[in-house]
Design a protein around this nucleic acid. Structure first.
Lengths: 105, 105
DNA sequence: TTGACATGTCGGCAATCTCCGACATATCTT
DNA sequence: AAGATATGTCGGAGATTGCCGACATGTCAA
């Protein structure tokens, strides 16, 4: 399943959604349980989950009257790929900062 | 210089801004030169550059009547850090896909 | 079957985003 | 000094986002 890069970056643009993904690294959780973690109405969280679903960052498994959400991290690989060409730039910069610190000694 | 994580993710949420950053990996460019790369008005691009400046992803150097924009990639390290805990999840998944492919042979 | 529970979706409001044309500012050239 | 050039910012229009209360749907328990 291929997801538009835009959907993934857009999904990550919101702190609630980033936190949701972090929570799901600890294992599947129900929609209600997730909603309880925030100072938000349940519908608000449900809509954030919808955005994450659209970006294929989560999938849900119906379990009786509740629904378990699971992390599906593959689309994040796209972010990693996008980021990769930049890595050498911030590493270069960190190295030069380290050099300066060394000189200071 | 510390930038709120939110500003960085927000800056990356727009495809024009992501493209701007990619263009700047090839070296500094003037505002006008950057604007020419898009099917957008010059003010629109200028405002995207402002968002990138707020996220400290670029900095600018006045050069006579033009202004050279430079990439400053450090804030992207924050994105890398955020992403890191998820890496093992998508690698696990890729591995299992590879296993399936292997079985198919 | 009825009532309680878990969840998704809808309608609407306020805030934010994206874009543009118009204008302001600063710098170069003549 | 005057005009051309490069750029930033402002005001406003239209689209999108984020949020909520209310409602709809589907499942379990008595």
């Amino acid at each position: 399943m291929v997801v538009p890069e835009d959907d993934v970056f857009l999904a990550l643009a919101n702190p609630v959604r980033r936190r949701l993904l972090q929570l799901l690294t600890q294992g599947p959780r129900t929609a209600g349980d997730l909603a309880d973690q925030f100072d938000l109405s349940r519908p608000a969280v449900a809509e954030h989950l919808q955005v994450l679903r659209r970006a294929a960052l989560v999938h849900d498994e119906p379990r009786g009257r509740q629904r378990h959400y699971h992390l599906t991290a593959e689309p994040l690989a796209q972010v990693g790929d996008w980021l990769h060409p930049f890595e050498r730039f911030w590493r270069e910069r960190l190295r030069s900062l380290a050099d300066v610190a060394e000189e200071d000694q």
